[in-house]
Design a binder for these strands. Structure first.
Length: 270
DNA sequence: CGAGGGACCTGGTTGC
DNA sequence: TGCAACCAGGTCCCTC
């Protein structure tokens, strides 16, 4: 479900309910997420939420000292409800606030995570080695070009590698490569600087545009308020196998690259 | 070091 | 209708 735009949409949705509130309770119904939820997260109890931020696809809830860190994995979502609303299946934890609101985490596949971090969050082991944010100025074509020299890996895997750049998931990798006219299985080290300039631009464009649209809803993504995202209607290649390319009418192809489905136009992408 | 594959989970869809 | 196979938005970790 969640790529960077969906995480950003979620953050914006829960922020008004969390900002400045005291966390009264961290209620764990099922600790068996990607990593077991530990007792450390109870340090949040009694602390005031100072702010929310996103790093890669991690949501950080900054408290007075330290904070919580949540990842939505493949199928996770956070929504605001009232403490006392009956939990549904797969509602694994709640952050109960002094307002009576409750931030509720739902995740059928349980690839998500809830962790505690001690400051500075930048040094957390899961965040320390991450590449730049795609929407930052340090991420550009020359950065991609520099990092890719000598690499044989497919460019699609390259841009989905969080040590290179964060937040580019399977959907938006396919979309950005199509818009840049680059074949997803081309070796990353065999792409010229000019083409990387184009790719960095399309990555920024597709992510920024999807955020404005409230994320992509393919199956079940809903924002914190329950609204679906509206980007799915605008996908150019993702999940369009056999349908005509919007640019040249050739049938869109699907192939597996790095164990993930990859969609591309065999005519427009080289 | 880079590249590739398995692992973690549940549920929806597809095809026999 | 039943059941098995396959597929899914992420990413860490192991092996070669």
């Amino acid at each position: 479900m969640p790529e960077l735009p969906e995480v950003e949409t979620t953050l914006r949705g829960i922020e008004p309910s969390l900002q400045g509130r005291v966390i009264k309770q961290v209620r764990v119904r099922n600790a068996a997420l990607r990593w077991p939820i530990t007792r450390e997260v109870q340090q949040a109890v009694g602390q005031t939420v100072q702010g929310l931020r996103r790093r890669a696809k991690y949501l950080l809830i900054e408290c007075d000292s330290g904070g919580l860190m949540c990842h939505l994995g493949m199928s996770g979502s956070l929504r605001i409800c009232q403490d006392g609303d009956p939990p549904r299946k797969h509602d694994h934890f709640d952050l109960v606030l002094d307002s009576g609101d409750c931030v509720r985490f739902h995740d059928p596949r349980r690839f998500g995570a809830l962790l505690w971090w001690n400051p500075p969050w930048q040094e957390h082991v899961l965040l320390r080695e991450l590449g730049p944010e795609p929407l930052s100025t340090e991420f550009d074509g020359s950065y991609l070009w520099r990092r890719s020299r000598g690499l044989q890996v497919a460019v699609k895997n390259f841009i989905m590698n969080g040590k290179i750049v964060v937040g580019v998931g399977n959907i938006y990798a396919a979309e950005a490569l199509f818009m840049a006219g680059i074949h997803p299985s081309r070796a990353a080290g065999r792409i010229a600087l000019e083409r990387y300039r184009g790719l960095a631009t399309t990555i920024k464009d597709v992510l920024a545009h999807a955020i404005r649209r409230g994320g992509t809803t393919l199956r079940d993504f809903h924002s914190a308020s329950g609204e679906p995202g509206y980007f799915a209607q605008e996908l150019l290649v993702y999940d369009r196998e056999g349908h005509g390319c919007f640019q040249c009418q050739a049938p869109i192809r699907r192939s597996v690259i790095g164990q993930r489905s990859s969609y591309y136009c065999p005519q427009c992408q080289r």
